[in-house]
Nucleic acid binder design. Structure first.
Lengths: 144, 144
DNA sequence: CTTTATGCAAAGATTTTGCAACCCG
DNA sequence: CGGGTTGCAAAATCTTTGCATAAAG
């Protein structure tokens, strides 16, 4: 798992440093949880006090560029990061208005999502869908 | 339109100030566009140079609490604001990876959304779904 | 060894807050 | 009038950047 990420780094001629390994390990340890840069910084710092927060940001940006981690905003004014493979290509989350907990959701369509969650005792008050891609104007520039 | 928002302010014992009216007008003028606080600040400043950016933030926060505007992040590191009524309760957006333009989408389910957009010449590369509400633990506290 | 990566500190960007002056109702 | 509201400046957050030093390959 961790090794495969290191291979991706090597393959792209990026160095596998202690810091990068520590960050990947911290994220692996918190599997399924959406971490902020600061969450990761605090965790890595325990065993690696010299690490700087800028290294964490730079590493996360690199991992995002390599499609190893996914960077998302849950409308909190900061970003959270998770491994891409945790949910494949698409991202379905439930955000609790009460405690702010973020829960992964598996189903494919919204009405399924909602009724499945409500059967499990959740109350859905709102949802948001964001599609990403290329609009007709940018399409040709992209496919060239 | 603007009047109805002022009524909501009055009804909740908030004052209808020149600044609040100017901010609502700026948002109405840009109907359908998702504005940042700074977009609104810059626009209002043209006819109202004394306005402060903190007034814009405080007003937007108030309007969001009153369900007049909706505050969302499009993963840009800042928030954007739009009138709630523009799309009812739910929020469907298309974000172009090329130019960053944000386009409203009407349909109700993801597969419909995607095929409809692709028929119109869009390329969909990714999507994100976020549901908001209460998890079973927070549910009772909320419905009390 | 050479190049990339790091840590620190400083800067940027966005948003929030304290407080005296101001103005809506 | 009186209390909510504003503008300003300063602070708080989160994130990025410049640069000399360190370390990976």
């Amino acid at each position: 798992m961790l090794d495969s990420y290191c291979k991706v780094l090597n393959k792209n001629r990026f160095k596998v440093t202690r810091q990068r390994k520590a960050i990947l390990e911290a994220m692996e340890k918190a599997h399924g949880v959406h971490l902020t840069a600061d969450d990761i910084y605090m965790d890595v710092k325990q065993n690696f006090p010299e690490i700087g927060i800028s290294t964490v940001y730079r590493t996360l940006e690199l991992l995002a560029r390599l499609n190893i981690v996914h960077k998302t905003s849950f409308d909190e004014g900061k970003f959270r990061y998770e491994f891409c493979e945790d949910e494949g290509h698409y991202h379905h989350h439930f955000v609790c208005n009460g405690c702010g907990s973020i829960i992964e959701v598996e189903e494919d369509f919204l009405h399924h999502l909602e009724s499945a969650l409500e059967e499990r005792g959740f109350i859905i008050t709102d949802h948001k869908v964001q599609l990403y891609g290329y609009c007709p104007e940018c399409r040709d520039r992209h496919t060239e």
